[in-house]
């Protein structure tokens, strides 16, 4: 269900965005490596990730924008004994982590010669995090909104007067909240932007 909501959101935003001078919209494919608390729960490199960005260029060297992403990590744990409350359970575990960061960001561009424009950016916001452990017929789920920050470096390629190609390396970190552990992952983004 969440999948359809996010895809609908992206489609809607794509259709309804009005053309503005100096505004670009990007969509990136976002395979990711889980780290820290995310890797502790679901430690597999994930090919499932996507983000959507709107960037408003204030000038040639600076933009501010909005970013929403979705990353899904999963791991199958072979049969093992673990503890839940006062229960001892032996089973195969199917673990899933869904993370949806929502950030505002600022990016600094280093314009040089040619069509390649490197940049460094920083995002700040929140993220929805859901950890789910399917054990036989049982599902143990925890979810939390976490304060989130995300530094990134990347490069834009000026394809033509209409489009960018984008490549980036982005680190996401969601701070621990209560019993819910911190969540972090490193993403490689490959995408396209419309000017």
């Amino acid at each position: 269900m969440k999948k359809y909501i996010i895809i609908s959101f992206i489609l809607l935003a794509t259709i309804t965005l009005k053309a503005q001078e100096g505004t670009s919209i990007f969509i990136n494919y976002l395979p990711s490596i889980p780290m820290g608390g995310t890797a502790d729960f679901s430690n597999n490199i994930s090919p499932r990730g996507v983000d959507f960005e709107v960037e408003r260029f204030l000038n040639e060297e600076l933009s501010v924008g909005f970013n929403i992403a979705w990353n899904l990590f999963r791991e199958k744990i072979p049969e093992e004994t673990f503890y839940h409350n006062d229960l001892t359970i032996t089973a195969v575990q199917f673990r899933y982590t869904n993370i949806v960061p929502l950030q505002v960001n600022v990016k600094k561009y280093f314009s040089g010669e040619g069509d390649y424009i490197p940049y460094a950016g920083f995002g700040l916001g929140t993220s929805y995090n859901e950890s789910r452990n399917d054990v036989g017929v049982f599902t143990l789920t925890e979810d939390k909104w976490l304060f989130n920050l995300a530094p990134e470096i990347g490069m834009l390629y000026d394809m033509n007067y209409k489009a960018w190609l984008s490549v980036k390396l982005k680190y996401n970190y969601g701070f621990k909240s209560g019993e819910f552990p911190s969540q972090s992952f490193l993403s490689l983004g490959l995408g396209i932007g419309l000017k």
Binding site: K3, I7, I10, L11, T14, L17, A19, Q20, T23, S24, I25, I27, Y29, P47, R48, V50, W70, L72, R74, K76, V92, F94, Y96, D134, Y161, K162, A163, G191, I192, L194, K195
Partner: peptide, 27 residues
């Protein structure tokens, strides 16, 4: 802003397929 919707739509489609492609394990 100029539009290049066919490419964009293709990327959206690819993203949707990636997510719907067996996100859950078959036990």
């Amino acid at each position: 802003m100029n539009r290049n919707y066919p490419i964009f739509a293709l990327l959206l489609f690819v993203s949707a397929v990636l997510f719907s492609c067996h996100p859950e394990y078959d036990a």
